[in-house]
């Protein structure tokens, strides 16, 4: 007990950062699934809405039908929007509230006093976001397929699009969540500050209401924000190609999706880099 072995400084290298990042991801994910309110408002919310919309609007018939031909079921129509909403909630809402609460309840201050690298902390957060959002999307797709018989895309190209749109979207959402966690002044105000604007964004971004139904000026506003583009990217994967005609430019505009999300990702990273503090400037 009295003699401590000399501590090799090499043990504070990138491997340790990676190991602790993974340990944090497991720890964070465990805690995530123990909190009843986040399970409902972040994890299950899109699933519940997909169920409600699919059932409630079933009577309206298929979407995009021409002379009784083609079109997709209400469930199929809402699936990409709910996946997009899920990405926004799992990234922005979840991390925005989570980190604001951790800042105010002393968790961050305590971690700042330990030899935990900041990078490992963020690896843990992002790992938790990846695990929970993939689980969420799996449940959404499963619900759509099993309960509502939605046809899933079969072309590998579609799934390739899904992969890059998902990764870019979830990274952007996670980074923006970390960035806006600095807005709430206290842990108690975190949910009221963060949830309402995101809810408005979901309504004007083509998640709950078809984007083409919105007036031009509202479309212009929501086109600035990432959710509209996430939803559009997901529609390109899950809806038939002839639905592209209903999009604003008459096409899925995947380059636009990549550019806008890419810009938000960079903006988010810069804000995090400048703004994030354990509680002060730190290594």
């Amino acid at each position: 007990m009295t003699t401590t072995p000399t501590r090799p400084t090499a043990s504070f290298g990138p491997l340790r950062t990676l190991r602790l990042g993974l340990a944090r991801a497991v720890y964070e994910t465990t805690i995530y699934f123990r909190a009843g309110d986040t399970i409902f408002f972040t994890f299950l919310f899109p699933v519940v809405l997909l169920g409600i919309f699919s059932v409630a609007f079933q009577g309206l018939g298929n979407v995009g039908e021409v002379n009784g031909q083609g079109g997709v079921s209400q469930a199929a129509f809402y699936l990409p929007g709910m996946i997009a909403a899920g990405i926004l909630l799992s990234g922005v809402q979840n991390l925005g509230i989570d980190i604001a609460v951790e800042r105010s309840d002393g968790t961050l201050k305590r971690l700042a006093g330990t030899p935990l690298p900041v990078v490992s902390y963020f690896m843990g957060k992002i790992g938790q976001v990846l695990v929970t959002s993939l689980a969420q999307i799996a449940i959404l797709i499963l619900l759509a397929r099993v309960a509502f018989g939605v046809e899933l895309p079969t072309e590998p190209a579609k799934w390739l699009t899904f992969a890059w749109v998902y990764l870019l979207s979830i990274s952007t959402a996670a980074v923006l969540g970390i960035a806006i966690s600095q807005l709430p002044k206290s842990g108690k105000s975190a949910s009221p500050v963060i949830i309402p604007p995101l809810l408005v964004l979901q309504f004007i971004s083509g998640v709950y209401i078809s984007f083409s139904l919105l007036p031009d000026w509202l479309q212009a506003i929501s086109s600035v924000f990432p959710l509209k583009w996430i939803a559009q990217g997901m529609r390109s994967v899950f809806l038939p190609d002839d639905f592209a005609a209903a999009e604003v430019g008459g096409s899925w505009d995947l380059p636009g999706v990549a550019i806008v999300l890419g810009i938000w990702l960079v903006v988010g990273l810069v804000v995090c880099r400048i703004g994030f503090r354990w509680i002060r400037k730190d290594s």
């Binding site: 968790t107 201050k109 305590r110 935990l116």
Partner: peptide
């Protein structure tokens, strides 16, 4: 970090999300 590893800190404020 190597320096922090040699410290133990018990802060005045008790804090913890507590779901562990």
């Amino acid at each position: 970090l190597a320096w922090k590893a040699r410290l133990g800190i018990v802060l005045q404020q008790t804090g913890e999300s507590g779901n562990v």
